[in-house]
Amino acid sequence: MRRFVLAHTTEVALIVVMLVLSAGLSLATDRFLTLSNAFDVLNVSAVNIIFAVGLLVVLISGGIDISFAVAASVVQYLAVLALGVVGGGNWALGFLIAGAIGLGLGFVNAFLVYRLSIISIVATISTFNIFFGLLMFFTKGVSIYNLPDWLTTRVVFYEREMADGSWVELTLPVVVMLICCGATWFLISRTTTGRKLYAFGDNPEGARRFGINIGAMHYISFGWLGLMAGIAGLMQAHYAEEVVPNALYGRELDVLAATVLGGARLGGGKGSVIGCVLGVLMVSITQNGLNLMGVSPFAFKMIVGAIILVAITLSSARLDKLLPAFARARPRTGGPR
């Protein structure tokens, strides 16, 4: 147990902070600690978690991307237009089109970073503005409300009415999110490619000398984020039942903060899917609790920012300093988790 805790310091610290936060919010409002509210938080968080696991792969490889939310907006619009051309399509075709467009946009970032040797944050700031500018120019900010019937029909895998009249629902975005999390975990933890991504992010020059294909690492990491952005964009359109060009604008910084909060290192070489999910959930739980308490939305960013700062400080501290009794059991770990 001690070895497990010390090997997963960030995740354990986040769980502790979330439990304390949830206990406080449950005292402030009796609606917070209910099963229906927990499922609501999960359903609302699904799109951001899909974004986050894609971003995690880029961060592990030592890069950074802030264009993914805008890319998802582009995917939404183009995918819906393409589906209209082919007569509406279905879920299989929708995922195929959205994933392909997202993958292509991710490859654009990889090309700029690898072939043109542009620093990833500079490259993605550029594509952020280019993608969003082109989207708003050609759409003139007009939303699409006439979506295929299958895209706007709610898909519920599990539902149950509670004693208080509320409903517990497990919707399609959550199931897709779980699949994306599982696929990302498998990629970074159970494949040779994943180990190469960690090695490249931790020591790019060492990875280059070891013979790792640097170009492949860039295209895989940014391409994976593009794929996740495409899927997230389709799920957002399904959830909102409309396509609004600027609906996802601004989410990139929230997702980036939550992913780093979950233990991903901006310098590369570190991060886990479970930590990433916990980071997003903690931000969502905070926003949900504040909303139920009637706190002004204008205060959300300030309070959530303070909580993220405290949580990152706690999770970055060495646990053997906080709990000296664990120090003797601290294992030596390395590589991907």
Results as ranks from 00 to 15, higher is better:
residue 1 M to A: 14
residue 2 R to A: 15
residue 5 V to Y: 10
residue 6 L to W: 00
residue 6 L to E: 11
residue 12 V to G: 06
residue 14 L to N: 11
residue 16 V to L: 15
residue 16 V to G: 03
residue 17 V to K: 05
residue 18 M to R: 02
residue 23 A to T: 02
residue 23 A to Y: 01
residue 24 G to D: 11
residue 24 G to L: 06
residue 29 T to C: 00
residue 29 T to S: 14
residue 34 T to V: 02
residue 36 S to I: 12
residue 42 L to M: 13
residue 43 N to I: 01
residue 48 N to P: 03
residue 49 I to H: 04
residue 52 A to F: 06
residue 54 G to P: 02
residue 56 L to Q: 07
residue 56 L to P: 03
residue 56 L to F: 02
residue 62 G to I: 00
residue 70 V to S: 13
residue 73 S to I: 03
residue 73 S to K: 06
residue 74 V to K: 04
residue 81 L to K: 12
residue 83 L to P: 15
residue 87 G to Y: 07
residue 88 G to L: 01
residue 89 G to Q: 00
residue 91 W to G: 05
residue 94 G to E: 13
residue 94 G to A: 06
residue 100 A to I: 00
residue 100 A to D: 00
residue 102 G to Y: 10
residue 103 L to D: 11
residue 104 G to C: 02
residue 107 F to Q: 02
residue 110 A to K: 07
residue 110 A to Q: 08
residue 117 S to Y: 09
residue 118 I to V: 15
residue 120 S to I: 02
residue 120 S to C: 14
residue 123 A to Q: 12
residue 125 I to R: 05
residue 128 F to Y: 13
residue 130 I to A: 13
residue 136 M to F: 06
residue 136 M to H: 02
residue 137 F to I: 08
residue 145 Y to L: 08
residue 151 L to K: 05
residue 152 T to H: 13
residue 153 T to I: 06
residue 153 T to Y: 05
residue 158 Y to M: 14
residue 159 E to C: 01
residue 159 E to W: 05
residue 165 G to I: 07
residue 167 W to Y: 08
residue 170 L to V: 04
residue 178 L to T: 08
residue 185 W to V: 06
residue 185 W to H: 10
residue 188 I to R: 06
residue 192 T to P: 05
residue 195 R to P: 07
residue 195 R to W: 09
residue 196 K to L: 08
residue 198 Y to A: 13
residue 198 Y to H: 12
residue 199 A to H: 08
residue 200 F to W: 07
residue 201 G to I: 02
residue 201 G to A: 04
residue 201 G to V: 01
residue 202 D to K: 07
residue 204 P to D: 13
residue 206 G to W: 03
residue 206 G to S: 12
residue 207 A to D: 11
residue 208 R to E: 15
residue 211 G to A: 04
residue 213 N to T: 07
residue 213 N to H: 13
residue 217 M to F: 09
residue 224 W to R: 03
residue 226 G to F: 10
residue 227 L to H: 08
residue 228 M to H: 03
residue 229 A to W: 12
residue 230 G to K: 09
residue 231 I to A: 07
residue 236 Q to T: 15
residue 237 A to H: 00
residue 240 A to L: 05
residue 242 E to D: 01
residue 245 P to N: 00
residue 245 P to V: 00
residue 254 D to K: 02
residue 256 L to K: 05
residue 256 L to N: 11
residue 259 T to I: 02
residue 259 T to N: 05
residue 273 V to D: 09
residue 273 V to T: 11
residue 274 I to Q: 06
residue 278 L to D: 10
residue 279 G to W: 08
residue 283 V to R: 05
residue 284 S to H: 06
residue 286 T to D: 15
residue 287 Q to E: 14
residue 287 Q to V: 03
residue 287 Q to N: 08
residue 288 N to P: 14
residue 288 N to E: 12
residue 290 L to R: 09
residue 291 N to R: 04
residue 292 L to S: 04
residue 292 L to A: 08
residue 296 S to W: 09
residue 297 P to F: 08
residue 298 F to Y: 12
residue 304 V to N: 05
residue 306 A to E: 03
residue 306 A to N: 02
residue 306 A to S: 11
residue 313 T to N: 07
residue 315 S to V: 14
residue 316 S to C: 07
residue 319 L to C: 14
residue 321 K to Q: 13
residue 323 L to V: 15
residue 324 P to V: 09
residue 324 P to D: 11
residue 326 F to I: 12
residue 327 A to C: 09
residue 327 A to F: 10
residue 328 R to Q: 11
residue 328 R to E: 15
residue 329 A to C: 07
residue 329 A to L: 07
residue 330 R to W: 06
residue 331 P to V: 11
residue 333 T to Y: 05
residue 334 G to S: 10
residue 335 G to E: 07
residue 336 P to T: 10
residue 337 R to A: 12
